[in-house]
Computed example of a mutant assay.
Amino acid sequence: MGLQEFRTTDYEQRTATVPTPLKKYPSLAPFFKDKEPQEFEVRALTGEEIYTAEHRVQINKDLPGAIEAIMKRFTAQRIDAVLDSMGLGDSVPDQKVYEQAVIQFGIVKIGGVEVQLTQEDAVKFLDHCTAAGRLLFKRILTLSNMGNIPLGESNASGTTQGSETP
């Protein structure tokens, strides 16, 4: 593919279905009813979403001071509670903030149903379904690192066998 072909090529996002059997991930029980497939569909992140996820780490570092300045009349406990509910604040490791953003942007279907997670959903997911969350996080990054698919080519990312991340 030459530069001219690159300039005129359209792309689609890479996706994958990740099986998450309840036997291995019992914390996911609230997501799945008896007949639903016990799986998540994830997608590669766009460049902008990757940068947003990385930038959220810096926002996490800056946000406590900004909120504190705005809410001087509130107690420190209230400020910490607000930040913790958002999965932000000094006590939250940078890596967790990054993983929350990736999970929020990358999960597109749960049990065959389209979803759009909020930041709070991603926080709760990683807090209570940590193993499955880390599995999905790694799969989303793998897809993102592979890049998008030029239209007319195969989505070689396919379905994850078992729960392994290639």
Results as ranks from 00 to 15, higher is better:
K96W: 05
Q104I: 09
V97L: 06
I107P: 01
R78Q: 14
K109L: 08
M71W: 09
Q77I: 00
I110R: 07
A81V: 01
I103D: 08
V113G: 08
I103G: 04
G87Q: 06
I70L: 13
D94G: 11
A101Y: 07
K72A: 05
A69L: 08
M71Y: 09
I70E: 12
T75M: 05
R78D: 12
I79Y: 01
A69V: 03
A81K: 11
D80F: 01
G106V: 05
Q104H: 06
V92T: 12
I70A: 12
A81R: 11
S91E: 06
V82L: 15
Q104N: 04
F74Y: 08
I110F: 07
D90C: 01
V82N: 07
A81S: 14
I103M: 10
D80C: 02
Q77W: 02
V102M: 13
Q95K: 11
L83C: 05
T75A: 03
K72W: 01
G112T: 10
A69I: 02
Q100K: 07
L88N: 08
A76T: 06
Q100T: 12
M71G: 01
D90T: 15
T75S: 13
I70Q: 08
I79Q: 12
G112F: 06
D84G: 12
Y98M: 08
I79M: 05
G112I: 11
V108A: 10
S85A: 14
E99S: 07
I79K: 12
S85E: 15
G89E: 06
I107H: 08
R78H: 11
I110G: 06
A81L: 09
D94V: 00
Y98R: 09
K96H: 04
E99K: 09
S85T: 04
I70F: 13
G111F: 11
Q100P: 02
D80L: 06
Q77M: 06
Y98Q: 07
G87C: 07
S91C: 05
A81Y: 00
V97T: 13
V92Q: 07
I79R: 11
I107E: 06
D80A: 15
F105G: 06
E99R: 07
T75I: 00
I103N: 06
D80N: 15
Y98I: 00
F105R: 06
I110N: 07
A69H: 03
K72D: 03
F74W: 03
G89H: 05
I70W: 04
G89F: 11
F105L: 02
A76C: 01
G111Y: 12
R78T: 14
V82I: 15
